[in-house]
Amino acid sequence: MENFLDLKKLNTFVKIAESGSFYKASMILGYSPAAVSIQIQQLEFDLGTRLFDRLGKQVRLTDYGKQFYPYAEKILMLNEEAKESLIRTDDPISGDLRIGTVDSICDTLFPQILAEYHEKNPGVTLEIKVSTPAELFDALKHNSIDIMLFLDKPYVAKDFVEDIQVDTDVVFCASAKHPLACKKSIDLKEVLEYPCILTEKNSSYRYILENKLSELGLSISPGIESQNTNLIIKLLCKNMGYSVLPRFLIEQKLRDDVLKVLPIKDFNIKAKYHVLHKKDKFVNRQMESFINLLKKQADVLQVVDNYQDIAMSV
């Protein structure tokens, strides 16, 4: 077993375990599929045990492979940590950063954040994955992304580290021309009688909304559903109904007086803005810099919420 600490072989093993495919691992690493197979054969020979079951195109870790995987991850992480410790803190940050997020955050908060991050760290290559929370959790678990941003109900992070968790207001909103837009107070049952546009069922803030309505013995039936929040906002601007969205998504439209928050009487809901990374993952300088930038942005979200509270009390 004297050669099993070959970092190149360990990295190949981890990439196959994460991607579930020899071919995908070869594409990620830039090796030929044959080279990947040879590395794993050598690693299995060095360890004296089989690490993968190959069932046609499917690849699964054997029990020994599952046992070895966390050790391989730790060895690679310690290697990265050791290299990082030799870099002076005033040296420019370089390397790769893989970020996963949901459609709504990507369309609203991300452009400004990415522009600021790139200006500070031009040597970092950014890879952005936009998907559903379920797919992002899987990607984070299998180390396909480094950081995940999403909106949801309160979440207990067992296998992940919660870098940021902030309450953000979710509001009923509509065009400034909507019949309810001029009212100072609206009954919940009244607004539910109007046509509405919502995100797809079981998405984060719609799930929170429907749960709270259910507790009150009420329900909501959208005329239009879409996972694309940009489309929903455009339809609102055309006065095609009302929607229920995180306030930060429509903040600019509110300032421009194109959209209005509908003041629903005795009904308030919030979603959680989360930023996570995988537990036990080494937080490199690229990740640390991005998380610190997100913390500043999270403070802005809280300021927006406080501004709304003050405005509603005047």
Rank of each mutant, 00 (worst) to 15 (best):
M1N: 09
M1I: 09
F4D: 02
D6F: 01
K9G: 10
F13V: 05
G20E: 05
F22M: 14
Y23W: 13
K24P: 06
M27H: 07
Y31M: 12
A35C: 08
S37N: 12
F45A: 07
F45K: 13
G48R: 08
R50E: 02
F52T: 01
L55R: 13
G56T: 09
G56Q: 11
R60F: 04
L61I: 04
K66V: 07
A72G: 01
L78A: 02
E80P: 00
E81L: 00
R88P: 03
T89K: 10
D91L: 06
R98E: 10
I99N: 08
I99K: 06
T101R: 06
C106G: 06
F110E: 06
H118T: 15
E119H: 15
E119C: 07
K120P: 02
P122E: 04
P122Q: 07
T132E: 09
A134S: 15
E135H: 14
L140Y: 01
K153H: 03
V156N: 11
E162D: 11
D163K: 12
I164D: 03
T168Y: 04
V170R: 01
F172W: 14
C173D: 04
S175M: 02
A181F: 12
C182M: 13
K183G: 06
K184V: 12
S185M: 07
L192E: 14
Y194M: 11
P195E: 15
T199K: 08
T199C: 08
Y205W: 15
Y207L: 13
E210M: 05
K212S: 00
S214A: 15
S221I: 15
S221D: 15
P222T: 08
E225Q: 08
E225C: 09
L235W: 10
C237P: 08
C237G: 15
C237Y: 11
K238G: 03
M240I: 04
M240F: 03
V244G: 00
L245D: 04
P246K: 03
P246S: 07
I250C: 12
L259E: 04
K260P: 06
D266S: 12
V275K: 06
F290G: 03
L293W: 12
L294R: 14
K296W: 12
Q297K: 15
A298L: 13
V303W: 13
D305A: 04
D309N: 07
A311P: 06
V314Y: 11
